[in-house]
Design a protein around this nucleic acid. Structure first.
Lengths: 147, 147
DNA sequence: ATAGATGCAAAACCTTTGCAATCGC
DNA sequence: GCGATTGCAAAGGTTTTGCATCTAT
């Protein structure tokens, strides 16, 4: 996607599941819906909470299983946030990294194009292929530096 | 440090502690010694294990408390590894980032000089000051790409 | 002496797992 | 119906916390 905002496409989820003889259950719908709602980086806990609002019978293990399934299907990815918790995001068609402010916790996306030759440099120099969607860059954001 | 290898200086630890009326206990010595031994990125669990070898009376909570204290003092920093566990390292005088292979788990250090204008770019473009020592870059290393 | 540290044990947290029951296909 | 999926409940692993005791300064 050009604008950096990635959405989890229903069609993709359905297609992937059917293609592998996996099932589209209400619980999975709910998790996907929750992911779509947040439109960005979500903690597993946030998904659990959202799903519980919808249906009190929801259970965390199902959420985790679903999230890991979606990840296996290549539909979402996860990074670990500043506190070490899993934070999921739709697998963007245009992969992007995250700038995470250690002071206010704000997360901001930046695309590969904003990294300059960073990726190429690491590849040439170390033969290292960066997994951009798992790249969490910690530091201080503008606001906190000025404030 | 110029060579990228950072050591935790005893003098710094002692100075910081005394300056704040904190105490240099045997347990703290042991943790610092363990950190020095590994000379790099260490898991909290590794420190605990090492300390237990020295003295069976060691207790994990003390290790965690000490590590967090050292971090507060600015002597060490930590990142979260691929599994979300805390991984500590001496606060390098020459800060460096880490290349972490998601396949084999190998970690490799790279200095600011190897990042090209990456840091400057983020600063100019987003006003974002990267905390280099918390930068964990995930991807595939040379070995795993070739293999 | 006295504030700071430790050990212990328990809890908090996040995540995973086994298994019988259930339900989508 | 069959096999995938769920709920439940329990366990696993990591990190934190309260409190009485101890100790470096």
């Amino acid at each position: 996607m050009a604008d950096g905002t990635s959405r989890l496409a229903w069609a993709d989820v359905a297609a992937q599941l059917r293609g592998r003889h996996l099932r589209l259950t209400p619980q999975r719908r709910a998790v996907v819906a929750a992911l779509a709602e947040f439109e960005g980086h979500v903690t597993a806990a946030q998904i659990v909470e959202r799903c519980l609002e919808e249906d009190a019978d929801f259970v965390p293990s199902t959420v985790y299983r679903t999230l890991h399934l979606l990840e296996d299907l290549g539909l979402i990815t996860h990074i670990h946030d500043a506190d070490g918790r899993e934070e999921f995001q739709p697998a963007a068609e245009a992969p992007h990294a995250h700038l995470i402010c250690r002071e206010c916790g704000t997360t901001r996306e930046i695309g590969a194009d904003e990294l300059g030759d960073f990726l190429g440099l690491l590849h040439r120099r170390h033969g290292f292929d960066v997994d951009l969607s798992h790249l969490a860059i910690f530091g201080r954001c503008v606001g906190c530096t000025r404030g």
